[in-house]
């Protein structure tokens, strides 16, 4: 489920947060679904459980996950929206990048094609999953 690169220099806990968010966005894990326990993740990834704990704490702090004592941690209902909200700023990045590319003489179609490709891929990566409550 997760793919941690210990040599990349990027802090492991950041990678966990990022990849958890990705999973949620992509639909690989849906609201109210339980996320792996610290222990199992620690053993799977061979990562210090405290690191994972830290990541999980931050996710919970940002209300992307919630925990039920004695049971485990679950994805919050509006997790997707919350994550999305933090990416708002990225739209400005697109403006900046496009602006400069335009100045540089790059054709608009190149940019719009790139945007389309991104959207296509994202849709493709999104997993159609049933919500756990819909199971019977």
């Amino acid at each position: 489920m997760f793919n941690i690169d210990k040599l990349s220099g990027r802090p492991v806990y950041e990678q966990i947060i990022e990849q958890m968010q990705y999973l949620i966005l992509v639909g690989g894990i849906v609201p109210d679904e339980q996320i792996p326990s610290v222990r199992s993740l620690s053993l799977d990834l061979s990562v210090n459980p405290n690191t994972i704990q830290k990541a999980y704490n931050e996710l919970e702090f940002n209300k992307i996950t919630y925990s039920v004592p004695g049971v485990g941690r679950f994805v919050a209902k509006d997790a997707k929206q919350k994550i999305g909200a933090s990416y708002d700023k990225k739209v400005d990045v697109i403006y900046d990048a496009s602006y400069w590319l335009a100045l540089a003489g790059v054709e608009q179609t190149v940019i719009t094609d790139t945007v389309s490709k991104a959207f296509t891929n994202a849709k493709r990566h999104m997993v159609e999953r049933m919500k756990p409550n819909d199971k019977n």
């Binding site: 222990r39 620690s42 053993l43 061979s46 990562v47 210090n48 459980p49 405290n50």
Partner: peptide, 14 residues
Amino acid sequence: RNLVKNVIYSDVCE
């Protein structure tokens, strides 16, 4: 090393 790490992690968790 990984094996040992995992045992330690397990103990830390549990």
